[in-house]
Design a binder for these strands. Structure first.
Length: 973
RNA sequence: GCCCGGAUGGCGGAAUUGGUAGACGCAGCAGACUCAAAAUCUGCCGUUCGCAAGGAUGUGCAGGUUCGAUUCCUGUUCCGGGCACCA
């Protein structure tokens, strides 16, 4: 008997006792680094979606080990984060305590699955021994600047030297006060002035930025805590507020981040997403005179060719000019609009196109080429942070501009002739320009250069490369995160001395925000005020701080003198395979790439891309189940209260059928239950149905387990449950019919009662079955709804494998006989398939290949060690427990974890003929067995003599015969 | 809205480079074994016409390229993920 639970318990213990997964930093073997994305240990526990990626990476790690690599496969916790703090606010429990508890649960659940993690390397971002180095790296960023000549980070001291000896002088042209200065001027600056200048170059810097400010809660909110302009908790208004924030100057690395994508093996779509995020565009900054010319409006555009189609200008509402140029008559309208915009989130501002809003400033700009007056508007769809915060609107070419023009009755100039139909914008670059002065008759994409040249000549435009990406906000007004190693001396930021790291997160009793939107740390006056002049930074770092470099710490996790030893980093080098979800495409992945590049520039590591290959795992969605509650029941003279007072649930089919029979069936059933005699048959009964989520664990397929359902919540105990066949399941009675639930695919979440706990499945089928089933579900990269229906099949497969060794009645059946050719052929076919599929992460097809193999060996009655032993090794990455047991029973003493992956031999596959599919006009009609070395002529002859083919040709001559050797034959008639 | 994915039987999926659509598994049906059940084994299983042989049709939808399209191109619908303070 295959006693999976005893086997798995035994081997998990055995591997723990023998340190089977401990990895050395010192090995003659080639290294391989397999990493999972850092999990946040949520309090909700694992559901079946979480382990998907971990199983995929575990299979690969184990496979590489069998292939002779020294494999690093660590796991740890990104244990700072908002949920723990939120929980602390609600319950008063310290995040450190709840986090610890969550990690314990998480670990227990992971252990059940039988992963090969080297737990001696576990790291936690909230551990001071870890965040000491997060702070240390932050200081490296703080003490560095990006040199535009060398295009890399350099120590800020070099910049200070340069300023002190050469100043900051213009390359050509005049000195601009505030931007340029001489060495003498620099040396005469006060410390504050000097530091302010340096702050503009530091890679980690502070500046003012907008946050979501909720006055009523006295706190800053995350984007996902703001819904439609009000706070998620309590529904209080949220507005933008400027606060001093820390940032990482990721924009300086935009080009390097783009170039780096060429060197890594990420999916095209992932690269595409990062490219779009960085959003590099080449365009022109054009100056327009405003009014009679005292002021200039700068706009950024990638389409200077459309300059004659500009019908209005749009400023971001927060643009500096808004205030200055608004005419007295428009003041009221503008300030009203500004008030409205303040309440809008950035996402809302750009996403909602149906609602067109804006306000006219009353001012006009002048088109430099034809002198036309162009009205200047402000509108929320233009963001201050991108480009110059102002655009020239060309309604015939841009749909948003077009909609805006229509809505505010701004006349539209057509510069593309017939290509513009007056009903919608046409963003083409191929049209011939008209109404366009000196550009008339030129194709738009050619006109871009012509217009640009002319603008440069007139000194009103210059080429400009723009990036959509902005510097990364790096501070949070929160408690549960890394404190900044920054103190303010007389208001000037100063790095904390390295020797004083870590700046330990102080204990608090109260997690509520500090004054003026500061974080909770601001309440700890003793901690903040080191002395009268010296005060601590009270912000903390965001979630991505610790996760931007954790892959380096795993290499040397207990190092107390460095974030990791350089030699050890050189050995492990890049992460060879990184497994995680696409939801991290532009956040975590870009930040860790940035940190890696900076560490590389500073000579601390020898590679500038952290992840060589990225494997994206799809989401496992939940498959929710619903019961249907009857309400708003109306049926002539029935007292609706009789219905409303009882919880009546209809099986899915009942109310679906009811639309066909004027609800008569429902009427009959309900009236019978309630013991009502309807006298008025004229009135059609009507009712509404509200679906209620029901726990998927009490539904078998779509059949509700009524007993379990009644016990689930008190209000369901007495529910009247109307079954699919129209009968009623009364409380406490046995019923023969079934209640059919509705089904919908949604995100897997506790609140939707559609989570499935892996522990339950592992308990029932074992970890090996669970692992293989998760892989069997479909391609790792694809999202799919969870359904446990098929798990039996995988479990049967493992039992069948076991029976190749041990028969339930006969006992041991494996033997030492010589294997037959057929069995060897099956084995080697499988070796090839498993190796290929594992290499390309096609685990679902690998699992079916195992099934096919075991089916065929069973048919061949093959029980010999010669075939079975290599098969066990193949299966080790997928189902490590069962193979370890059988391996031992075969008498092996060395661990199967370190066995050698069997070698495929082609000699079992020499074939001389093939069954060719033969098609006529592309439709497959028959197959013919033909020798593999037959020539085209021979094949044609054989094909044309075939009875089926003759019949189908029906005396028509073959026009052409296509023969692809080893593939197919197609006859064209 | 913008960016990125996805859509194939009753269900999860396979078809690796344009070449026999539906491997493998689930569910279902029929049968064997059994006193019975479980377990196991055998056969059938896209739709449709047909007793059968066989035919027609079929990879979200509408077109196109090709001797041949699930695969390439154009358009379109629906679903999922991301959009900068959730991690």
């Amino acid at each position: 008997m295959y006693d999976f639970s005893a086997i798995e318990k035994f081997w998990q213990k055995e591997w723990q006792n023998t340190n089977a997964y401990k990895v050395s930093n010192d090995s003659a073997k080639p290294k391989f680094y397999v990493l999972d994305m850092f999990p946040y240990p949520s309090g909700k526990g694992l559901h079946v979606g979480h382990p998907l990626g971990y199983i995929a990476s575990d299979i690969f790690a184990r496979y590489k080990r069998l292939k002779g690599f020294n494999v690093l496969h660590p796991m740890g916790y990104d244990s700072f984060g908002l949920p723990a703090e939120q929980y602390a606010l609600e319950t008063g429990q310290h995040p450190a305590v709840t986090t610890e508890k969550n990690i314990e649960t998480f670990r227990k659940q992971l252990d059940n699955v039988g992963f090969s993690f080297d737990w001696s390397r576990e790291v936690r971002t909230s551990d001071p021994k870890y965040y000491k180095w997060t702070q240390w790296i932050f200081l490296q960023l703080y003490n560095s600047y990006f040199c535009h000549t060398q295009k890399k980070a350099l120590p800020i001291s070099k910049l200070v030297n340069k300023y002190a000896t050469n100043g900051a002088m213009p390359k050509n042209g005049e000195m601009i006060p505030g931007k340029h200065f001489t060495a003498d001027q620099w040396n005469a600056y006060t410390e504050k002035e000097q530091q302010d200048i340096l702050m503009k170059r530091r890679l980690a810097f502070s500046a003012y930025g907008e946050v979501n400010w909720c006055e009523a809660l006295g706190t800053v909110l995350a984007n996902d805590e703001v819904i439609n302009g009000v706070s998620e908790r309590g529904g209080h208004p949220v507005v933008k507020k400027k606060m001093r924030q820390w940032y990482l100057r990721i924009t300086e690395y935009a080009d390097r981040l783009l170039e780096g994508l060429e060197t890594v093996d990420f999916s095209d779509s992932m690269k595409e997403m990062q490219k779009n995020w960085i959003g590099k565009s080449e365009g022109v900054e054009i100056q327009f005179a405003i009014g009679n010319g005292q002021q200039q409006l700068k706009v950024y555009t990638t389409r200077p060719d459309t300059i004659f189609g500009v019908d209005f200008m749009v400023l971001a509402p927060e643009h500096d000019l808004t205030d200055q140029i608004t005419t007295p008559g428009q003041k009221e309208a503008i300030s009203k609009y500004l008030e409205y915009v303040k309440s809008r989130s950035e996402r809302e501002r750009v996403a909602e196109v149906k609602q067109i809003t804006g306000a006219f400033t009353g001012a006009y700009a002048t088109n430099p080429f034809d002198g036309r007056k162009i009205p200047i508007w402000i509108a929320e769809y233009v963001l201050a942070g991108y480009g110059t915060g102002a655009i020239m609107a060309v309604p015939c070419g841009d749909q948003r501009d077009f909609n805006f023009a229509r809505h505010f009755n701004i006349p539209i100039t057509n510069i593309i002739g017939e290509r513009f139909n007056g009903e919608e914008a046409n963003p083409t670059k191929d049209a011939l320009l008209s109404n366009s002065g000196f550009l008339d008759g030129i194709i738009m994409k050619d006109a871009i250069g012509v217009a640009l040249q002319q603008m440069e000549k007139l000194g009103i435009g210059k080429r400009k490369v723009n990036y959509k990406m902005r510097d990364a906000g790096f501070s949070r007004q929160r408690y549960w995160g890394e404190p900044f190693p920054i103190v303010y001396k007389n208001g000037i930021a100063n790095a904390v001395d390295e020797k004083e790291l870590p700046v330990v997160l102080p204990h608090v009793e109260n997690y509520s925000p500090g004054p003026d939107g500061q974080g909770p740390l601001a309440n700890l006056t003793e901690w903040v005020n080191i002395s009268d002049e010296v005060k601590r930074e009270t912000n903390t770092m965001p979630g991505y701080a610790g996760s931007s470099w954790y892959f380096l710490r795993y290499m040397d996790p207990h190092n107390a003198t460095a974030f990791a030893d350089k030699k050890i980093i050189d050995y492990w080098n890049q992460v060879d395979v990184y497994v995680g979800g696409t939801e991290h495409a532009v956040g975590h992945l870009l930040y860790s790439r940035l940190w890696t590049k900076v560490l590389f520039d500073l000579g601390l590591i020898n590679f500038d891309e952290p992840f060589k290959k990225l494997l994206n795992q799809g989401m496992i969605q939940g498959s929710s189940r619903f019961v249907y509650r009857l309400n708003n029941y109306e049926s002539g003279d029935v007292d609706t209260n009789l219905v409303e007072n009882r919880l009546i649930l209809l099986s899915k089919g009942i109310f679906e059928r009811s639309s066909n029979d004027d609800n008569k069936e429902v009427l009959a059933i309900v009236n019978k239950i309630l013991n009502i005699k309807t006298t008025n048959t004229e009135i059609k009964p009507s009712f509404a149905i509200s679906p209620l989520h029901v726990d998927v664990n009490m539904v078998d397929g779509v059949n509700l387990n009524i007993d379990a359902f009644r016990k689930w919540k008190p209000e369901f105990k007495e529910a009247v449950i109307i079954l699919e066949d129209g009968s009623v399941a009364e409380p406490g009675e046995e019923s023969s019919g079934s209640y059919i639930c509705g089904v919908e695919v949604e995100k897997m979440s506790k609140s939707k009662y559609n989570t499935v706990n892996p522990d339950v499945l592992i308990e029932k089928y074992g970890a090996d079955t669970f692992r293989m089933y998760e892989m069997f579900l479909g391609p790792v990269e694809q999202s799919k709804p969870w359904d446990a229906k098929g798990i039996e099949g995988v479990h049967r497969f493992l039992r069948k494998l076991w029976r190749l060794f041990y028969d339930d009645t006969k006992g041991k059946v494996w033997n030492e006989e010589k294997a037959g050719d057929a069995a060897l052929k099956v084995l080697h076919k499988t070796i090839k398939k498993i190796e290929e599929d594992t290499e390309r992460f096609s685990y679902n097809t690998a699992v079916s290949a195992f099934m096919v193999c075991v089916n065929e060996l069973a048919d061949l009655k093959c029980n010999t060690r010669e075939v079975l032993q290599p098969l066990l090794i193949l299966l080790t990455p997928y189902a490590p427990h069962i193979v370890a047991e059988l391996w031992k029973r075969l008498g092996n003493t060395v661990s199967i974890l370190d066995a050698t992956f069997p070698k495929y031999e082609s000699k079992y596959f020499v074939e001389s003929e093939k069954e060719y599919p033969v098609s006529i006009n592309g439709k497959m009609r028959t197959t013919i067995i033909i020798s593999l070395d037959a020539s085209q002529d021979e094949v044609e002859k054989i094909a044309l003599e075939n009875e089926v083919i003759i019949k189908w040709l029906d005396n028509k001559p073959a026009k052409k015969i296509i023969f692809v050797k080893g593939k197919m034959v197609n006859i064209v008639v």
